[in-house]
């Protein structure tokens, strides 16, 4: 029974995998990139994440919020407490009410959410030709392909449309976007952001911002991988110990 069950299970898994891969629509699957956080021992690279944050701040944040991030979270990508205070202070948030019952504006503090570009979704739509720029703090979990998808959209997708492609006014052709009509104009241009004073290339910016957004979606990935290694190691030992104990106890009786 065991062999047959294993075969049935393998067939089931193959079907599930095939099903998962096929689930998305026409757009081709984003090509796989190499990420520092891939694999069992993968970790984030702080320099990459900080460059990616610069790209987000200088380019993406004009339209996209990172709803679930606080300024204090930036300490996890290598900024010091004072640096984070400085970054936050450049933003203004509405606070209050004060003792007179008035709301007031004040510089942001590390404990504040990073404010988005628009006060609400309606304002965002009004400013973006009817399109709603999605929150980016979960984008790599909310799209098949994760960081590969982000990289493909901003780094690879804005190519010349194929012959016969019917453009829709107010949209752009993007090879990796479902339906190919995207309302976002190509966001990255060579040199749009400077890394250490050097103008950055589009692939580098795309890579770094995708890595940053993956961190924004899963800030605990490093801890997860490291804890996982310990837990798995412990359980491997436990499996061996319990197997030996089981053999030994069962050797007392004929079976």
């Amino acid at each position: 029974m065991l062999k047959a069950a294993a075969a049935a299970l393998a067939a089931a898994l193959a079907l599930v995998v095939a099903g998962a891969a096929e689930a998305q629509e026409e757009a081709p699957p984003p090509p796989h990139q190499t990420w520092s956080f891939d694999g069992v021992f993968g970790t984030y690279n702080e320099a990459t994440l900080q460059r990616g944050f610069a790209v987000y701040q200088q380019v993406c944040s004009a339209c996209h919020p990172v709803t679930h991030l606080y300024f204090r979270d930036l300490e996890k990508i290598g900024y010091t407490e004072d640096e984070v205070k400085g970054i936050a202070a450049k933003y203004t948030v509405t606070a209050g009410p004060n003792k007179e019952g008035q709301m007031f504006k004040r510089p942001a503090r590390p404990a504040d959410h990073i404010p988005g570009p628009f006060p609400n979704d309606e304002a965002a739509r009004a400013a973006n030709n009817g399109g709603l720029p999605p929150d980016l703090s979960l984008i790599t979990l909310a799209r098949d392909g994760g960081p590969d998808y982000v990289y493909a959209i901003v780094g690879l997708g804005f190519t010349k449309p194929p012959p016969g492609f019917k453009p829709i006014p107010g949209t752009y052709y993007n090879q990796y976007f479902a339906g190919n009509h995207i309302k976002m104009p190509p966001p990255l241009h060579p040199g749009a952001v400077k890394f250490d004073g050097q103008p950055a290339s589009v692939p580098q910016m795309a890579h770094d911002v995708a890595a940053f957004l993956n961190w924004a979606a899963e800030p605990n990935l490093d801890e997860r991988h490291q804890t996982g290694a310990k837990v798995v190691l412990f359980l491997v030992v436990a499996v061996i110990v319990f197997y030996a104990a089981k053999r030994r106890i069962w050797s007392r009786i004929p079976h």
């Binding site: 069992v40 991988h225 996982g228 837990v231 798995v232 499996v239 089981k246 009786i253």
Partner: peptide, 23 residues
């Protein structure tokens, strides 16, 4: 006899489960 056999099976399960949860 079956407590130890179940414990062994549990450890195998937890190992596979941990691989999913963590990775």
């Amino acid at each position: 006899y079956y407590t130890i056999k179940d414990m062994f099976g549990l450890m195998v399960f937890l190992l596979l489960f941990a691989l999913v949860v963590f990775y």
